[in-house]
Write a protein that binds this DNA or RNA. Structure first.
Lengths: 93, 93
DNA sequence: TAAAGCGGTTTATAATATAAACTAAATTTC
DNA sequence: GAAATTTAGTTTATATTATAAACCGCTTTA
């Protein structure tokens, strides 16, 4: 049986990746609202995705307020698609 | 966003459930081989599925050798199907 | 200028997954 | 027929993960 990429096999990281697959860019606050996660949890999980090279998180400003914008990378896109394929084995889709 | 049932959102338990969805019955040794898991891990995860009421695990004999046979329950079947539906939200299937 | 809010990060804790060590019975080997 | 090996698991210890709580620096508002 195929392995399920453990980096993606996590509820919150999967939700984030799924959003970023469809949205070209999303900031921290948006991801937090969409996923209904706490800021702490989101921060930790985003770090893991960044470290894996699956997303980028760029800090910038909107006026004087900080804003962290996330993008999916080509590598992240590929990993997500591979994960979906592996999951199909488990779910018989 | 829908919750992913944490009892099913585990690689090994999901693999076991997927097998039992399609197989009417499967014994411990068969599940161990199919999932390529260790006996210890499988034993623990089967217990959790039994405690959740998702499967039954019945001990019996084949000649003098013990044999644990697993079946999925109606509740397990329903939970699996619900999990698949929830996952589709995450994967855009 | 004190207090409250925003956008996060760090850290502590609880839950989970996993393998390693163990057990008890059966089978094989010498 | 006793010792070693295998089989079918269970229990326990450990590493990993997820999560929330506490915190931090800056900004706005009262």
């Amino acid at each position: 049986m195929k392995e399920l990429n453990p980096l993606l096999h996590s509820q919150l990281r999967l939700a984030v990746m799924s959003i970023l697959m469809n949205v070209e860019e999303a900031d921290f606050v948006y991801l937090k609202e969409k996923t209904e996660s706490t800021a702490g949890n989101l921060s930790v999980q985003l770090d893991k995705l960044v470290n894996a090279g699956y997303i980028t998180a760029t800090k910038g400003f909107v006026g004087k307020k900080t804003r962290t914008v996330c993008h999916i990378t080509a590598q992240g896109r590929a990993a997500f698609e591979e994960y979906v394929e592996a999951l199909k084995d488990y779910l018989n889709l």
